[in-house]
Simulated assay, not measured.
Amino acid sequence: MKKSLLALAVLGAFAGAASAQSSVTLYGKVDLGVGKATGSADKQVRDGASSRVGIKGVEDLGGGMKALFGFEHRFSPDTGMDTTTEGKTPTSTFWNGYSTVGLGGTFGTVNLGRQYTSAFTLAQDVFDPFGGYTVAGLRGVALTPKTKVLVDNVQTPTDAAKLRTANSIRYDGTFGGVSVAADIAERSTSAASGAKRPYSVAAQYALGPVLAAVSYENPEGAKDNLLTAGVAYTFGPAKLAAALSSGKDADGDKLRGYLLGATVKVGTAGRVLAGYASLKEDSGTTSATAKKVSLGYRHDLSKRTFLYTDVTRVNKVINSTEQTGYDFGVQHNF
């Protein structure tokens, strides 16, 4: 009996040590609302924030080393369909958010796989008060723009900035109040002639109420590149942000964008969001400027659930008929 109790105690100790050294987390968010996007006259139930489910984990390897992994799937909660295949030819990108494995230590972390670019996570994604989501998102106009729709009026715009790259390797490190990152990836199989390996580098400084970031990105094309820089300042219940982008698209057209944003806490559960974004695209013979202004409100029901409503308006360069969009929705995070 005593031997059995001793064996159980030893096994329990080992199990406790293993669970303390390793962790696996299930997380995600589900978002649905009703509204109308700019560029469409349809009123519909829509996902305003890229609903997702993911799993991430870490294992202590000893000696200050750890193993990391993560993968994330995007889906449409109103239909249950994979957002990479809905209304399109099916693809094999099930883990469309990211899918990575890596190692970490005192030197920082190194991850491999499909992942966000350094420019996106440290600079392009931190200044939009709407986080790039809902009909009001501003990031996609000024900081991660799609081009050729302005000066050439094409139906399939070109990404001037990559949010993610596959077959990539990325390094992240933190030194005091400065976070740095760099990534490089293989060229995509559909890359045009003259394409380069996409890469980006970024740095972010955070100290008290101040956050500043800068990044440089070479998306993949023969001529494209994008420099992004911005600063945010929090005082009292308000946070103000301003960011600029400058570069060229794959055809060498010049790009100049900027974003201004504000978030103001109202009471104990509310937040008012406002912002303006602009992008000028100049081919040398033709130029056009996209403009978007947005206003929104968030009301927290708990730490994980909130209600939202937004209204946004774009200029005729982006859309000549449906210039106003709006939404009313709920988002739950877990």
Rank of each mutant, 00 (worst) to 15 (best):
A262C: 02
P198Y: 00
G208V: 01
T324P: 07
G70H: 06
A142H: 01
A185P: 14
A161L: 05
K66L: 00
G63N: 05
D224V: 08
Y133I: 13
S118R: 08
V180T: 11
P157Q: 14
S294H: 04
V231E: 03
G113P: 10
G221C: 05
S99M: 03
K88P: 11
L273R: 14
Y98H: 12
E220Y: 05
F14Q: 11
A160M: 09
T263A: 11
A206V: 15
Y258F: 14
S92H: 03
G230V: 05
R170I: 10
S92I: 01
T93A: 11
Y98W: 09
V135E: 07
T89H: 07
N153Q: 15
V293D: 08
V264R: 11
G284L: 06
G275W: 02
Q323C: 00
L163T: 15
F71H: 13
Y27R: 15
H73P: 00
G97N: 12
A277T: 08
V45Y: 05
S168K: 13
V264S: 12
L227I: 09
Y216I: 09
Y258E: 05
G270Q: 09
G28R: 15
A206S: 14
V293Q: 14
M81E: 15
L112N: 01
F107Q: 00
D282K: 01
L227N: 10
N319M: 06
A161G: 09
V178R: 07
T147R: 10
A222T: 13
V126S: 10
A232I: 00
V311C: 02
S278M: 14
R139E: 12
F75S: 13
F334R: 12
A229G: 15
T263H: 06
L143S: 10
Q115Y: 01
D253N: 15
K239M: 15
G104W: 05
A67K: 04
G140H: 00
G108A: 03
K43S: 13
S51W: 02
K88M: 12
D300H: 10
S294E: 02
G113F: 04
K303C: 00
G64K: 12
A9F: 05
T83M: 11
G325T: 11
A213M: 06
G284Q: 11
P90K: 07
A274E: 06
V10H: 04
A229V: 09
A203F: 02
F14R: 08
V34L: 09
G113E: 03
V266P: 05
T100H: 04
G35I: 07
A269Y: 03
K29I: 00
A202P: 03
T289G: 07
P198R: 09
S179R: 12
